[in-house]
Design a binder for these strands. Structure first.
Lengths: 346, 346
DNA sequence: AATCATTACCAAAGCGCTTTGGATTTTCCA
DNA sequence: TGGAAAATCCAAAGCGCTTTGGTAATGATT
């Protein structure tokens, strides 16, 4: 059932039916009801492609998920972010189109999305420092919102980010308050912007508290369980092992816990661990009380908000670049405690 | 740059340019080259919406991800499946559109995708027994492939599945061979088809080996880490605890390991665990040697194959329903060993 | 009663592409 | 060298919608 069929069935012109359905004023309220009723009865829904062609708007947002050849890992936060963004799109009547692509092809894909008219805007995932995608998107004139930020980018752009620096600074200072002095950082890959900021927060806290950060207690890799295990195990066997760990993801924190248990150490008593928790739906940090003390911020909520930001930019192109910085919550869990090796109370 | 502009720039008609670009025979090879060259030079790419409108094919496949209100969890295998499917789509020039939806709205969404002409087909995720979506899709005539199967569905349909039954039967029998007699099953929600088949395999193995399966050692819930921990802990404190666990997901298996360690039990020595491993990119089962003995099958590969199946069905509608059953591999890891409580060797 | 807004509708153009049904030119063979 | 066949190209219709630029009828205003 298409517009023409529906309109002849109603004895009206396609023009009037279209206007009635789209809420234009120049149509009798009575006929509007008649049209609306017939539309549901005939299960009529305007063809998206025809509509897009006529209006020039695709009514779709693109997400490019790029897999590097080296470590071709799907970002585990992706599903939850998508789920959040998808909710916003559904509410606004937008579709979400996802392209899976090799990272070196990402620029080409953006150009294609633009020239083929597939989407009205895109969300940029996993930004790096001086991210090359931002100038590309600017130059081709495709609206976008970055999930995260890209240190070093000079031109203004829209982003939504968690305050990673402050989250890691606060977490580090919390450990210092528990008398920890040798605090390890199990970070994500430090070409990623978020990892840079987390390291900065970690180092800032050391400076603020007059502590020296030992470079031997700092690693940076792709955040798997195995990585957390391997790194923690190695550090715990150093002559001067850390008494606390700051970990960039739940997965790696689980690996750290496994390493601790390998060595017979109990979290919260013998060893403290704070993790970053994206509040992923399939990886909850405990059920009632958190297993890990954690800096928490829901990536699903971030998806919702980033999508809304992009949609509002598309609806009002004049508003210009938008920014939003979310603060992570520091949740107290069972994995932190006073440094057992610190002599006495301060 | 659109077709008309390109064609006037070339001094040709839009017809000829279109045919040249689409490889039709009735165009001089020389002009075809001229057109192709001009197309890349002007960065021309046909507008997808216009093309779709003219051809009637959307050149897009839909994935509906439905979140139930009760446990609104994003399926953790989703990202990897999508990544695999996306590769196949990209190769074939198809887009992937994802709808996030409340599960009770899923039928409505399929109807919309069809009547709005958004997609040429869909992949059905996470089928249940007697899944209601299959008759709906049949009735609206939208091509689809189910990732998994739906026990109880009578009409033929296309699916791609792992042999969950045989995987769990083999795993169970492997444990029996190690002298385990009290084997627990930490299963997923048993309205899901895969969970039903896994339970069947588990029970079949008991029957085959003349063992009685204790219903107290069988639970079924959403597969989180916390669930694995809680269930294993409870069972290990029974008067007659299990000596081995069969777990339906890596996440829950990690919880089982945590429970074991809570009680001072070492996996592979005091307690055996076999898990199902979807080979998720962010949740590798160890790096060189598997942590867990596991039944493994790559969900990413499943995505690739399911997408290819659907595309081939769309290209050749006459071929009818397709099916493909993959076998999981049983990978020996560090989490299994001889039952320490079994007296002597058999 | 003539004029003017307002209301309610419609015909037709246009979005950018494909495809049908020619038209024109070239090639080939008797 | 004529005529059929093959090779090239094109005009125009059509995909299903929106939107511009109307027209006709009604009501309000002088």
């Amino acid at each position: 059932m298409n517009l023409k069929q529906l309109s002849t069935a109603l004895g009206l012109s396609p023009t009037t039916v279209s206007r009635a359905l789209n809420g234009y004023p120049e149509v009798n309220e009575e006929t509007r009801l008649r049209v609306a009723e017939a539309a549901v009865r005939h299960n009529y829904r305007p063809n998206t492609r025809a509509k897009s062609l006529a209006t020039g708007r695709a009514m779709a947002i693109g997400h490019v998920i790029s897999l590097s050849n080296k470590h071709e890992m799907v970002n585990p936060i992706f599903a939850d972010f998508i789920a959040g963004a998808g909710e916003s799109y559904a509410r606004a009547g937008y579709d979400m189109v996802i392209s899976v692509v090799n990272d070196q092809d990402e620029g080409r894909v953006y150009r294609e999305l633009k020239s083929k008219g597939t989407v009205d805007g895109v969300i940029v995932h996993a930004p790096e420092a001086n991210d090359a995608r931002i100038p590309v998107l600017h130059s081709i004139g495709l609206p976008f919102v970055v999930h995260g930020r890209a240190t070093g980018t000079s031109t203004p752009y829209s982003w939504l980010d968690v305050n990673n620096r402050s989250a890691f600074q606060r977490a580090t200072e919390f450990l210092v308050d528990l008398n920890h002095a040798r605090i390890a950082l199990i970070n994500g890959l430090e070409h990623m912007d978020f990892a840079i900021r987390r390291r900065t927060g970690y180092l800032d806290a050391h400076t603020a508290r007059g502590l020296a950060a030992d470079p031997a207690l700092r690693v940076s890799e792709e955040m798997t369980e195995g990585y957390g295990h391997r790194a923690a195990r190695a550090m715990l066997q150093l002559p001067m092992p850390p008494t606390a760990f700051l970990v960039s993801s739940m997965n790696s924190a689980i690996g750290v816990r496994r390493a601790a248990e390998d060595l017979g150490l109990k979290l919260g008593r013998d060893l403290s661990v704070i993790t970053y928790d994206d509040d992923l739906s399939y990886l909850r940090n405990g059920e009632d009380v958190p297993i890990f003390t954690a800096a928490r911020s829901s990536v699903r909520e971030a998806g919702r908000l980033a999508a809304e930001m992009l949609l509002s930019m598309i609806a009002n192109p004049e508003i210009g670049p938008q920014q939003r910085l979310l603060e992570a919550e520091l949740m107290l869990g069972l994995s932190t405690g006073r440094n057992p090796q610190a002599s006495g109370l301060r």
